[in-house]
Computed example of a mutant assay.
Amino acid sequence: MTVRREVFLDQVKERGEYDTPQEAERAARVVLALLGAHLAGEVRAQLAARLPEGFALILLNPLQSAEPLRGERFVRATAAWIEGATEQTAAWDVSAVLSAAADTAGDLLKEILLQLPAGYDLLFGRPQAA
Rank of each mutant, 00 (worst) to 15 (best):
1 M>P: 13
4 R>N: 13
4 R>Y: 04
5 R>K: 13
5 R>G: 00
6 E>N: 12
7 V>L: 13
8 F>N: 03
8 F>I: 11
10 D>Y: 04
11 Q>F: 01
11 Q>P: 00
11 Q>Y: 00
13 K>H: 03
13 K>Y: 00
14 E>T: 15
14 E>I: 07
14 E>K: 15
15 R>T: 03
16 G>P: 06
16 G>N: 06
17 E>G: 03
24 A>E: 08
24 A>H: 05
28 A>Q: 05
28 A>R: 03
29 R>A: 12
29 R>L: 12
33 A>C: 10
34 L>K: 04
34 L>W: 02
38 H>A: 13
38 H>Q: 15
38 H>W: 06
41 G>C: 09
42 E>G: 06
42 E>V: 11
43 V>A: 07
43 V>N: 07
46 Q>I: 01
48 A>I: 05
48 A>Q: 10
48 A>L: 04
49 A>F: 06
49 A>E: 14
49 A>I: 00
50 R>F: 00
50 R>S: 11
51 L>C: 09
51 L>P: 10
52 P>C: 10
54 G>D: 14
58 I>Y: 04
58 I>T: 15
58 I>V: 15
58 I>R: 12
59 L>H: 11
59 L>V: 12
61 N>P: 00
61 N>H: 15
61 N>Y: 08
62 P>M: 09
63 L>I: 14
63 L>R: 14
65 S>Q: 14
66 A>N: 11
66 A>M: 10
66 A>H: 09
67 E>Y: 14
68 P>G: 03
69 L>K: 10
70 R>F: 03
72 E>T: 13
73 R>Y: 08
74 F>D: 04
74 F>R: 10
75 V>E: 01
75 V>L: 07
76 R>D: 04
76 R>P: 01
78 T>E: 01
78 T>A: 07
78 T>C: 08
79 A>H: 05
80 A>H: 01
81 W>P: 00
82 I>T: 07
83 E>R: 13
83 E>K: 14
83 E>Q: 14
83 E>C: 01
84 G>K: 04
84 G>C: 08
86 T>L: 01
88 Q>L: 13
91 A>H: 03
93 D>K: 03
94 V>P: 05
95 S>D: 01
95 S>R: 15
96 A>D: 10
97 V>Q: 06
99 S>G: 05
100 A>G: 11
101 A>E: 02
102 A>W: 12
102 A>G: 14
103 D>N: 11
103 D>V: 13
103 D>M: 06
104 T>G: 01
105 A>W: 07
105 A>E: 09
107 D>F: 02
107 D>L: 07
108 L>H: 08
108 L>S: 05
110 K>P: 01
110 K>R: 14
111 E>V: 00
111 E>H: 15
112 I>H: 06
113 L>G: 07
114 L>P: 00
115 Q>S: 08
117 P>W: 02
117 P>T: 09
117 P>E: 06
118 A>I: 06
121 D>V: 04
121 D>F: 04
122 L>M: 06
122 L>I: 06
124 F>H: 08
124 F>T: 09
125 G>K: 02
125 G>C: 11
125 G>E: 12
127 P>L: 02
127 P>D: 02
127 P>H: 00
128 Q>M: 10
130 A>T: 02
130 A>I: 02
130 A>R: 09
